[in-house]
Deep mutational scan, measured.
Amino acid sequence: RNLTILSLPEDVLFHILKWLSVEDILAVRAVHSQLKDLVDNHASVWACASFQE
């Protein structure tokens, strides 16, 4: 069985995303439609995003 980041529970993905910069979140968003939906549909992803580079 192949395990990917998409195999992780949504709460784990949120925990990972909250540590990323805006640039990295946008890069993750571009990788897969499921990740794009996760980022686009949950404001909590952006609430913790680091807007300082």
Rank of each mutant, 00 (worst) to 15 (best):
L3Q: 01
S33N: 04
V31C: 13
V31E: 00
S21N: 11
S7Y: 01
N41T: 12
A30M: 15
V28W: 03
I5V: 10
H32E: 04
S7C: 09
V28G: 03
L13A: 06
S7N: 12
H32V: 06
S21P: 13
Q34D: 07
A30Y: 06
A27P: 07
V28P: 01
Q34Y: 08
F51S: 10
Q52P: 08
S21D: 15
F14Y: 11
S7I: 07
W46S: 09
Q34S: 13
D40Y: 01
H42F: 07
A49R: 14
L26E: 06
L17S: 01
N41I: 07
V12T: 06
L13H: 05
C48I: 09
P9A: 02
L20C: 07
H42S: 08
H42E: 02
N2T: 11
S33E: 04
N2P: 11
A49G: 14
L38T: 11
H32Y: 01
A30S: 14
I5D: 01
K18F: 05
H32I: 01
P9G: 08
W46P: 08
V22K: 12
A43W: 10
L6S: 01
R29S: 04
S44Y: 07
R1A: 00
K36F: 02
T4N: 13
A47C: 10
L17K: 00
T4I: 01
L8Q: 00
P9T: 04
I16D: 01
S50Y: 08
V39W: 04
C48W: 09
T4A: 02
R1W: 00
F51P: 11
E53V: 06
K36V: 02
L35I: 11
L8W: 01
L3F: 12
I5L: 14
S21E: 12
H42Y: 08
R1P: 12
A47E: 08
Q52V: 12
V12M: 00
W19E: 15
V45E: 15
I25Q: 05
V31S: 15
D37T: 14
A27C: 12
D40G: 02
V45D: 15
V39E: 02
L6R: 01
V31Q: 06
L38A: 13
D24T: 04
I5G: 02
D40T: 07
L38I: 15
W19Q: 15
V28T: 05
L38R: 05
V28E: 02
E53N: 10
N41K: 15
L13F: 14
W19D: 11
D40I: 00
L8A: 06
L26C: 10
I5N: 00
S50D: 14
L3E: 03
L8P: 04
H32M: 00
H42T: 06
L6M: 06
D24W: 03
L13D: 04
V45G: 11
K36Q: 05
E23V: 08
L3S: 12
V45Y: 15
W46C: 08
L8V: 00
L13G: 04
L26N: 06
S50I: 05
D40A: 00
H42C: 10
L20D: 04
F14V: 15
C48F: 08
N2W: 01
K36T: 03
L26G: 07
F14E: 13
H32C: 15
L6T: 06
I25S: 02
A30E: 13
L6Y: 07
N2V: 12
P9W: 01
V22H: 12
V31H: 00
D24Y: 06
A27R: 13
D37R: 15
L26R: 11
D37P: 00
Q34N: 07
Q52F: 10
W19C: 15
S21T: 12
R1S: 14
L35G: 03
S21W: 02
L26H: 08
L20S: 03
S44W: 06
S50M: 07
E23S: 11
L35N: 03
H15C: 12
N2L: 04
T4R: 03
A27E: 03
L26T: 08
D24E: 08
F51R: 10
T4L: 01
L38E: 01
S21F: 03
W19G: 10
R1I: 14
E23C: 05
L6C: 04
F51A: 11
A27Q: 12
S33Q: 04
L20W: 03
L35F: 11
H42Q: 09
V22A: 11
I16L: 04
L20R: 01
S7K: 12
P9C: 04
I5K: 03
L3H: 09
T4F: 01
A43C: 14
D11C: 11
S44V: 06
T4V: 00
I5F: 10
Q52H: 12
L3W: 05
C48Y: 08
F51M: 14
I5C: 04
N41H: 13
W46D: 13
D40V: 05
I16P: 04
H15L: 10
L3D: 05
V45F: 13
A49H: 12
L35Y: 04
F51D: 03
Q34K: 15
E53T: 08
W46K: 09
C48H: 09
A49C: 11
I25T: 03
N2G: 13
K36C: 00
S21L: 01
H32R: 02
S50T: 11
R29D: 05
N2Y: 08
E10L: 04
I16E: 02
E53P: 08
E10G: 05
V28K: 03
S33V: 06
S44N: 14
I25W: 08
H42V: 03
Q34V: 12
C48T: 13
V28R: 01
S33T: 10
K36R: 14
D11K: 15
N41F: 04
V31K: 02
D37E: 12
L8G: 00
V45S: 15
D11H: 08
S44Q: 09
V39N: 04
L17Y: 03
A27D: 07
L38W: 10
C48S: 15
V22C: 09
Q52T: 11
A43Q: 12
I16S: 04
V45Q: 14
L35E: 03
L8D: 09
N2D: 09
S21R: 11
I5H: 02
V45T: 15
N41S: 14
V39C: 10
N2M: 10
F14R: 14
D11R: 12
W46V: 07
N2K: 11
N41M: 10
A30P: 01
N2I: 05
L38K: 09
T4Y: 01
N41E: 13
A47R: 11
E10A: 10
V31Y: 00
V12H: 03
A43E: 09
D24C: 03
L6D: 05
W46G: 13
D24S: 01
D11Y: 06
F14L: 15
K18N: 12
A30R: 14
S21Y: 05
W19S: 13
L20G: 05
V39T: 02
D37H: 12
V12C: 09
A49T: 14
N41A: 13
H15I: 10
V22S: 07
L13R: 05
A49M: 06
S50H: 09
A49Q: 14
E23K: 12
D24F: 00
L8I: 06
H32A: 07
I5W: 05
H42I: 13
N41G: 13
S33W: 07
H32Q: 06
L8T: 04
H42A: 07
A49W: 07
V45C: 13
Q52D: 09
V12N: 00
R29E: 01
Q52M: 10
S33D: 06
P9M: 00
L17Q: 02
V22L: 14
A47M: 12
V28M: 14
R29G: 02
P9V: 05
